[in-house]
Design a protein around this nucleic acid. Structure first.
Lengths: 195, 195, 195, 195
DNA sequence: GATGAATGAGCGTTCATTCAT
DNA sequence: TATGAATGAACGCTCATTCAT
C-alpha cells in the first residue's frame, strides 16, 4: 500500500510545495545537507530561487518539511501490523527491508538527519521518535515472550536496541552496497527466529 | 598492521600537523562536515587561517588526513588478536565497545565519513576498507565454524554483514544515548555466543 | 490655496488610495524611507502587496502621493491669515507650533523628504515650494516693517531664512524631545517680537 | 587647527580603514543611508566587496565608524574656545559656519544620522550628545548673562534650544542652497548680539 | 613558517514588480 | 479589484584560497 498521496479525484492545486520537498529530499540523499542549495532545489523543479521562498520562507523550513516527510514515510512501516507478536515483528522488518530496496535514499536521508539531530536542537524530537520506536519494539518482544514466540530469557530492551542499531547501520549500506544491507537484515531475522 | 606514524625515537618538530588534524576531527564530531571551517580549525590551535594552508594546501587534504587518522585508530581494534576465533571475535568487539565508550566521537566521525563516502569518489577507498573488515570477519567466523566455536549452519558472510551493520548503527547512538549503543553491542555478543 | 483633493460632497468609493497614503506616511515617519516596504504598507491596510500596484503602479508614485499630502497639510499653516503682518506671522507660527505638537510625524516626514530632495530630481519641486514659503515670509516681514510692526533695520530675507531654518531644525526634535522643539519656537517668537 | 590625523612622521600602514570610512561618508552624503551599499563603498576605494568585511565585519560597524568620525569632526567646533562667553559663542558659531561652507556634507550626514537616531537604539547616544551640546550652550549663555554679555532676561535654555534648532535646520540647506544657510546663521548672530 | 590583506565565487534572502486568473 | 505565484536583480555576508611580506 505504501503512502498514498493525492489519491483524490481532483488535482491538487499545483503541488509545487511537494515538488520542492521531493527535490530537496533527493538532493540531500545525493549530496548531504552539506550540498543542499536552495537555488539548486528550485532549479530542479524549474523554479526561480526566489520563488522557493514563497513556499518556504527559510531554508530551515524546507529542511523541516523534508524531515517531516521522511518520518511520515518511515512510520508507515509500523502501521496496521497484525498477527502474533513474532508475525508483527516479521512484517515490520519486511516492510523496512522492502523500503530499503525500493527507496534506499530514504535511509540515507534518515542517517543524515540522525547525524544532524545530535547538534541541531530543532531536530531533537527525532530522538524521541526513535525512543517511540524502541518502546514499540519492546512491547512487541515482551508480548512475544509471554506468548512463547521467543524464549523467556530474551531481553526485550536489549534486543530492541540491537534491532534498531542493525537496521540503521544497514541503512548506510543500502545505496552503496545493497547486498550488505540485505544480508544484515536477513541475519537479523535469523537471530530473531532462532529458538 | 595499522599505519604507524612518527614512531621515530626523535620528537617531531612541533606537531602542528597533528594538532590541526585533531582540531578538525573534533570539529567534525561536533558540527559535521557541514560545519567544518578551516579558519576555525586553525583558530582552535592558535594559528592563522592562512598558515593552515602551509600544512594542508587544501581543505580536502585536511579532511583526508582526518579520515586516515580515524581509520588508523579504528584498525587497532583488529591488531594482534589471539586465541580461538571466538575469542578473537570477542576481543575485537570488546575493543570496539571500549572505544565507543571512551571516544564516541570516533564513531560519529566514522558515520559522517561513511555518508560522505557515498558521494565523494576520493573517499571510495573507505568501501574497500570496510570490505577488508568484512573479509576479516568472514575469515574469523569461517575458522570458528571449522573449529566448532559456532554451529555449522552459521553463514559467515551474512553474519559478518550483520556485525558490521550493528556496530555502525550503534555508533550513531554512542554520543547521544550511550546506553542504547551498549545494549546493542551486548545483544550482538549474546547472539554470537548462542549455540 | 493649498491643494484640495476630494472636496466633492460625494463619498469617494472606498478611499483605499488614501488609506495607502496614510499607511505609507506613518511607515516613513517611523522607519524612514530606508524602512519603507510596499508589501508592509499594503498589509497595514489589509491589502495584498500586488493590489497596491493597482493604485500606485510604482513605489515612487506612492511616495509622491505621500509627499503631496504632506505638503498640502503643511500649506494650511499659511491659509487665510488675517490681521497686521505681525499678527499674521504670529498666527502662522502658532499653527506650525500646534501642528508640531499634535502631529510631530508630519515634520519627521518633512525632514526625510527634504533630505531626499537633495538627491532625487523628482523631489526638486520641494525647493521651489520652500522658496515660495520664503517669499511669503519676506512679503509678510516687509509689510510689517513698513507698518512699523518691526524696526526698519530688520532684514526680511535674512530673517525669513532664519525662521525657516529654525522651524525645520525644530522639526527634527518634535518627536524625540518635544520640549526642545517647543523652546526653539518660543524663542523664535520672542526674537521676532523684540524691538 | 582642525583635526590632525596621522601627524606621525611615519606613514600609517595603509589607511584602508580610513579610506572606507571616507567613502562611506560621502556615499551617505550623496545617497543617504537608503543608498548605502557596501559593495559600492568598497569599489570606491578600489577594493573587493569581500575585503571590506575584513575591516568592518558588518555594515552596521562601518556606519558606526562613520558616525563616530562625524561626531568627532563636529565636536571640534567646541574645543578650546576662549574669551568672554559672548566671544566663545561667536567663535563656536563661526566655526560651525565655516565648517558648513567648507564641508556641507558633514551636516547632511548629521541630519541623516539624527533622523536615524530616532529609530535605531544603537544611535541613541546621539541624543545624549546633543544634550551635551545644549548644556554647553546653556553654560555659556548663563555665564554671559552674569557677565552682562547679554541682558538678564535672556533665557539660557530656551535660547540654546533655538540655536541648536536653527543650526540643524540650516544644515539641511547647506548643500542645496548655501545662501539660505548663511543668512540663517547671520541672523542668528544678529539676534544673539542684540541688546 | 607565519601573517594580514585580498579576492572570486557563491550563498540565503529581500523586494519591487509582473501576470494569469 | 484583488490575489497568489513568479521573477530578476541585488544585497550583506561567508569562505577557501592566494600572495606579498
Amino acid at each position: 500500500m505504501a503512502l498514498q498521496q493525492n489519491q483524490t479525484p481532483f488535482p491538487v492545486k499545483s503541488d509545487r510545495r511537494q515538488d520542492l520537498i521531493r527535490a530537496a529530499y533527493h538532493t540531500i540523499a545525493h549530496k548531504g545537507f552539506e550540498g543542499l542549495r536552495v537555488r539548486e532545489v528550485a532549479a530542479l523543479v524549474g523554479m526561480n530561487g526566489a520563488t522557493l521562498h514563497h513556499y518556504f520562507p527559510t531554508k530551515e523550513l524546507l529542511i523541516q518539511a523534508v524531515v517531516d516527510s521522511v518520518i511520515a514515510r518511515l512510520s508507515l512501516a509500523f502501521t496496521n501490523l497484525s498477527g502474533t507478536p513474532a508475525e508483527q515483528l516479521h512484517e515490520h522488518l519486511t516492510r523496512l527491508h522492502r523500503l530499503m530496496q525500493e527507496e534506499s535514499a530514504l535511509f540515507v536521508v534518515l542517517t543524515e538527519i540522525n547525524l544532524r539531530a545530535q547538534r541541531d536542537p530543532v531536530l531533537h524530537f527525532l530522538v524521541e521518535q526513535e525512543t517511540l520506536w524502541h518502546e514499540r519494539l519492546v512491547g512487541l518482544l515482551q508480548a512475544g515472550v509471554e506468548q512463547q514466540n521467543w524464549p523467556p530469557d530474551l531481553d526485550p530492551s536489549t534486543t530492541a536496541s540491537a534491532i534498531i542499531s542493525l537496521v540503521e547501520g544497514a541503512s548506510l549500506w543500502a545505496t552503496i552496497m545493497p547486498s550488505r544491507a540485505e544480508q544484515a537484515l536477513s541475519q537479523l531475522e535469523h537471530w530473531l527466529h532462532t529458538r
